[in-house]
Write a protein that binds this DNA or RNA. Structure first.
Lengths: 196, 196
DNA sequence: ATTTTTCATACAGAATAATATATAGAGAAT
DNA sequence: ATTCTCTATATATTATTCTGTATGAAAAAT
């Protein structure tokens, strides 16, 4: 009777094993008993919501309620995080990191605060989403503008334009269909994210 | 007792209300009793996981376990689908208006007449449909192409592509599911056509 | 071969979720 | 005012979780 939530409890077990934590240790961290955890993982019993929250927290996981329609985009993020990193994502992270550091300094340059927030959040996404070669180029272009702005600070209009172009980049990466997703060495399927 | 799952149950209530669904209707859809739902939403009782799953499903929501470090990225996606404001819709109308004026001039550029008609109809819809932040971005991108075409007129192939992208935009706005619909209250009634 | 660790399982009892049903109050609609 | 809908709340009963504790079996480490 318990497989309505099986996909969640299986993820719990996978997460625990991925960080090489024993049921006993998880028990200590979460406050549930070991026997309880065993039953949850096995599907012998359906946990209460609060138990799941406790266990998830202990595994550095968060419970999110997401509209079904957004699930492809969210899966994109979850998978890209567990996908093996290749040279593309390495450079990508370097670039995003540079943009983030720049933003920390230039945040006040934004005329509108919400625009600055949007920009920061777009960066958060770009750090985790797979990019095509073309998109990576655009990301590179963006960081190159930073160089020009070292000497000559941008106007708020330029900044706004800049933020928009970064957001465009984010959009194209987020809403990519999984079918034409960037080919990667091994696209891990949902249930086997236990590769470090 | 202070429940640690209140952030989830609050989202349930918010989702239900956003869809204008009564507790009774949700009760019918989810299989829980109305009284049960009331207590969950109020926080007087903590639901079991399976109850939460049932309710979430009935609201077209999915429960996701996400690594904490990915939360900024995920929040970004969740917000981009629901964020909207008055200023945004104002901008939306400005953009659509611009596209419409442009179309009045460039209508002959379309190789196929039906394509032009479809384009015009898409615009008419876009004027009245609530758009997410993402969709507004795409709309903005579209109008920016117009700028480039001031000097350098588009080929009929480019034009066709352009019309297609606008139509896609229209589709995503039209076929949005109830659950993540943009709350209309702010601008549902304030619409008087400003003719171009 | 022995010890340790890890996981599955069992059981009793306390705590709490969940059902079914009913009702009261608030607000909206007629 | 009367009727309707919606939400909160109450009560009694059943069902399930959860704890605490203990044990067996398999696997790993010594």
């Amino acid at each position: 009777m318990a497989y309505k939530t099986e996909y969640l409890t299986q993820r719990i077990r996978a997460a625990r094993e991925a960080m090489k934590m024993s049921q006993r240790e998880l028990s200590a961290r979460s406050g549930l008993t070991q026997s309880h955890i065993s039953q949850i993982e096995r599907g012998t019993m359906e946990p209460g919501l609060s138990s799941l929250v406790d266990v998830a927290r202990a595994l550095d996981l968060e419970i999110v309620l997401a509209p079904k329609k957004l699930m492809p985009a969210i899966r994109n993020i979850l998978e890209s995080a567990s996908a093996t990193s290749d040279t593309l994502t390495l450079e990508q992270r370097k670039l995003v990191g540079r943009l983030e550091r720049w933003f920390a300094q230039f945040r006040d340059g934004f005329a509108i605060a919400s625009e600055a927030d949007t920009f920061r959040d777009s960066l958060a996404l770009l750090r985790h989403l797979p990019l095509s070669a073309d998109e990576l180029d655009r990301l590179k272009d963006a960081t190159e503008r930073l160089d020009r702005w070292q000497a000559d600070p941008p106007s708020s209009k330029e900044l706004s334009e800049f933020a928009h172009s970064v957001r465009q980049l984010r959009n194209s990466a987020v809403h990519r269909d999984r079918d034409d997703a960037i080919p990667r060495s091994a696209y891990a399927l949902e249930e086997e994210d236990d590769n470090a």
